[in-house]
């Protein structure tokens, strides 16, 4: 399918939420996520103009994942953010202790994902954060479903070990 067959308006309508969600779950900051989403669509359009796209959905999801991980890695030198955890306003009331716990844990997870090897990070982000199926991830990344499982297992092991190190030793 070439770009001539794509209804871009429909494509944007259908994919804006997913692209933004992927980015938000990975980077955790809404402003960053919006910027990444725009980058993703821009890249989709440019690729379409230059060479055509066979699977626009796959390209958008993959780009959203990769660009978000890129952003996360660039940001890793700084403490991770958790924009979803605002101080309370008129309609939210997160207790300070829970807020601190949740923020600390999600901050840590994002930082740890940014440290994973690229393939593992992509698989983990798509399966664990975006909750895509193994088959979908395999198709998106152009690898076998078994390779997806392997990468996910390695990623979880790596993250588990990192959690242990963070806690000062194995806690199982």
């Amino acid at each position: 399918m070439g770009e001539g067959d794509i209804d871009w308006d429909r494509f944007v309508t259908d994919h804006a939420e997913r692209v933004l969600r992927i980015a938000l779950r990975i980077v955790g900051r809404l402003d960053d996520a919006e910027e990444i989403s725009q980058e993703v669509f821009q890249e989709c359009f440019q690729v379409a103009a230059a060479q055509g796209i066979r699977d626009p959905t796959g390209l958008a999801v993959r780009l959203a994942t990769v660009r978000s991980l890129d952003r996360l890695r660039r940001r890793r030198a700084r403490p991770a953010d958790g924009a979803e955890l605002r101080d309370s306003d008129r309609v939210t009331a997160i207790g300070p202790v829970e807020e601190a716990e949740a923020k600390e844990l999600t901050d840590w997870l994002r930082d740890a994902v940014a440290r994973l090897p690229s393939r593992q990070a992509e698989v983990f982000a798509l399966m664990a954060l975006e909750q895509a199926s193994r088959e979908e991830v395999a198709t998106l990344l152009g690898i076998s479903p078994d390779a997806v499982s392997t990468a996910l297992c390695k990623a979880r092991n790596e993250l588990g070990a990192a959690l242990d190190r963070r806690s000062g030793g194995p806690m199982r």
Binding site: E3, W8, D9, V12, T13, A16, V19, L20, E34, S37, Q38, F41, Q42, F45, Q46, A48, A49
Partner: peptide, 14 residues
């Protein structure tokens, strides 16, 4: 916001 921006981008790029 993302969708609105992307539509403009589509108009500019495509």
């Amino acid at each position: 916001r993302v969708a609105r921006t992307a539509r403009r981008l589509a108009a500019e790029s495509i």
